[in-house]
Design a protein around this nucleic acid. Structure first.
Lengths: 199, 199, 199, 199
DNA sequence: GACTAAACGAGACGGTACGTCGCGTCTTTCA
DNA sequence: TGAAAGACGCGACGTACCGTCTCGTTTAGTC
């Protein structure tokens, strides 16, 4: 239509400062890594970002919201290794799980995970956002691999690819939340369960 | 013997008040259910229990500790149905999972789970305690059933009983944390995975 | 001259909006009466006037300035009865003082006086303006009457007319500030002091 | 009575800290003198006193209350010269008024008066307290002198002693509030009014 | 009639202080 | 010496306004 693009915001007043927005997210990410979620304060974020406290509350409502957006926007990321495709599903998965283990055992990543879990727990309504930005990527990685394998060998998997991916993710979550080590034996059991060797 | 029983602490001064102890745990349990972990305060517990704040700190150290003990002592329990043994593992498991689903979908139980998750997330050091008192009982229920089935039909299960129990528990955790419904399809997939029908 | 009137600023750009000016003063006056000076805010004035905050700051600089101008322009007035001239100075003054008393005891006027006092106290530099617009009119009323009496009966007054007017004003101020009632006895004493009956 | 004194407080819990109380009043007095009432903040008082903000709010409710108590307890005092008695009422009063003038013109006293006025204006309900501790002492000084003079020379004064004292006080208030100088001429007029020389 | 320039409304910005809540500690009296 | 009561220093909360700073939008002159 010749009319001005519909839905174009009739923007009134001073527009939102991107500088402030980025500064808040960056500061939150840094403070999260250095001190964890529990020690994080809105006041601290605002100070570190060189921003008024009200600016945080104007756009976010709570420290959990800030963290969620920081995660969603990639200011906080888990160093997830990508799942290779060397032809052997079991071997690929095993290598990937060992990579995850390393990442989790590393100091920063552990703190990050714990922090994200806290954010999630204290803000149930935003759990979907966290799921989308944190859990989903992890599962997506193996999901596609499962899917591909399923196409190549129909009926060989013990369940739908996405379900298997979630099974792996659920186990990882369990280990992370309770601080259990992800040992070789456990990896073996997991592989036997979701990607049994062809008999 | 004339001597005080050996090893028995020669306790001096006024002994710990059981009245106060029970009142604190009871109050904590009630406040937890009615308001969740985040809204719980030591001050609130003490007031509701008719107890001095110092008394709480003398014996517990933090609100998480109180909750953990309340859970451990059974002041806070999930209404877990027990896993029957009607001869068919799949059928028994299915019934049990549906029972869990009902419990989770009920208002109070959902709040309790969320609260316990928060306690866990905000107090990593007590996670083991929470695991022992909250997660373990759930898993124990199915674990023993898996174990029994394994004895009866060696080699029929796709993994060690305790591992399979954890797999089920992990999935439940995933659903609870992200508020996913535990549908029939998902239950079926889970059963196919951990208790495949004999071919 | 054909040239534009000399000294008249060659004003460029949009001229000051009288609509906005009046709206601000009116809003300030209303808010002053309804809530007092302490509860008055620039933000509130701007909102009530349907005006941008910047517009207030562009022309006034502080809420005290706005109030001062509102008083000066007559948007806020004390309902002062005028001092009659029935031939008897004492009787006229007594009637006038009783009128003042009624005005002060009325709800709105009391609030107004208190508000103006606050404005005065919190903005010493504008005290002269407030004096001019608030105190002076009151004194002027009796001042002229004293003056006239002095001309008719030289030497009869116990001091210069303006000084006597200020004495009356000072007493009124004292009563207003400390919330003392202006009783008949006090009125009598005041009259005896500034307008003694001829012996 | 043998019983514990009736009305004796059954004091429970930690008693109020006198250290904190004195520190707050002292800090408030100092900040008042150095910065005035407008620049005074509860936060600032608490910080300067080495006291939690809550402690201030627990006992005082507002900065005005603190100031009022500081004045009432003598942490803030006007350097009032005492009214001598050299036999001549007019001469004594004149000397005393000149002393007041010096005190007012001095920097600290001026600020103090202004501050107290602000406190008064912003806290109408406490005006009586301020009157008692600030205005009354000034008036009491001359009141007793007037009274004595009235006993010695009955009928010589143009009004009751306390009324005349208030007249002087009211004039002083007027001068202080509007920053008018208290000149010799004005002092003379005042004396003529309240203590006319015997004819 | 286009151009310029200032005032306008709106509202976000970095700040300061507010008054409240809860922390974990300390200091009383009572049992 | 434990327990109740409750004040203490402290730190963060979320809100209210401050006075300033963009924005896009009038609303006059002036070219």
């Amino acid at each position: 239509m010749g009319a001005p693009s519909p839905g174009a915001a009739e923007q009134r007043g001073r527009p939102r400062s991107q500088r402030a927005r980025v500064a808040v997210l960056t500061a939150a990410a840094e403070l999260m890594v250095s001190g964890g979620f529990a020690d994080l304060t809105v006041e601290g974020i605002a100070a570190a970002a060189g921003v008024g406290k009200q600016t945080v509350y104007r756009w976010w409502g709570s420290k959990a919201d800030v963290v969620v957006e920081a995660v969603a926007e990639g200011y906080l990321t888990l160093p997830i290794v990508s799942l290779g495709d060397a032809g052997d599903l079991r071997a690929d998965l095993a290598a990937w799980l060992r990579g995850i283990r390393s990442a989790i055992e590393e100091e920063d990543a552990a703190r990050l995970v714990e922090a994200i879990m806290s954010a999630l727990a204290s803000a149930g309504e935003t759990s979907e956002a966290i799921h989308q930005s944190l859990i989903r990527p992890i599962m997506a990685e193996i999901d596609s691999r499962f899917r591909e394998h399923d196409r190549a060998h129909p009926g060989a998997l013990p369940g739908p690819p996405s379900f298997l991916a979630e099974t792996v993710g659920a186990h990882l979550l369990l280990h992370v939340m309770f601080g259990w080590p992800l040992g070789e034996e456990r990896i073996g059991q997991l592989l036997d369960l979701v990607a049994p060797a062809a008999p």
